[in-house]
Amino acid sequence: MTAPLEADEAEPLLRVHDLSHRFPSAAEEHWAVRGASLVLHPGEVVAIVGESGSGKSTLLNCVAGRIAPSAGQVQYRRADGRWVDVHALPERERRELSRTEWGFVEQHAAEGLRMNVSAGANVGERLMALGRRHYGELRATACEWMERVELDPMRVDDSPRAFSGGMRQRLQIARNLVTRPRLVLMDEPTTGLDVSVQAKLLDLIRLLVARLHLSALVVTHDLGVARLLAHRTLVMRQGRIVEQGLTDRVLEDPQHPYTQLLVSSVVAP
């Protein structure tokens, strides 16, 4: 079941076609992802939900070009309008894409940040990779972005080690968005944070995504995150996408028995 798309909807940004992945060490019939297809449009946020081990992170990593899938294609429309097959690109171009047009927000901020350099250097890194060599400008940009993600710009020279979990996650978002990516991939961006921090962070992500007209693919096991952020939701189970549709529809009127189980097992306070 695919989401009903309006005929005049803009051309998609990302197309995943019949993607399958089996880890080399896994058993013959054990596929981490099996036959996954999805489309992402500009400005759209799509959530991938499912239990642990359902293959959602593997799917995300395949999309990000970090894992070469066993079968299937990931196609991306670049800023210049050219469609590219992410996994057929030379590694150099893929890396360039991933640090300019894409962002990747890790679940653990420590993996996405350089923990031994200051917050400012973290935000500035992508710009320096693009050849910006003006310290004053880099620092000003870093302060500006820290403000945007509601971090105190006075702390631009502090190490991320001195930041709390929520602050680190904000810093990671700033670090990714500084090059104005078109597509942001997020792997459990709020997991491991306490509930009030989660709520604020979700608010911020929603605001930034809308303001910057980003497309985002968000992996989460938390249906609340999907409800707050995502226009559309995909439900994965045992490597397959079992249901996809508008988030409200999926959560209010789940069709697949597994989705029904998932929705009914949400603990309401």
Binding site: R114, V117, S118, A121, G124, E125, R126, M128, R133, Y135
Partner: peptide, 10 residues
Amino acid sequence: YGVMNVKLYE
């Protein structure tokens, strides 16, 4: 080599 400048920035 952007990462090299991260050190100098620091």
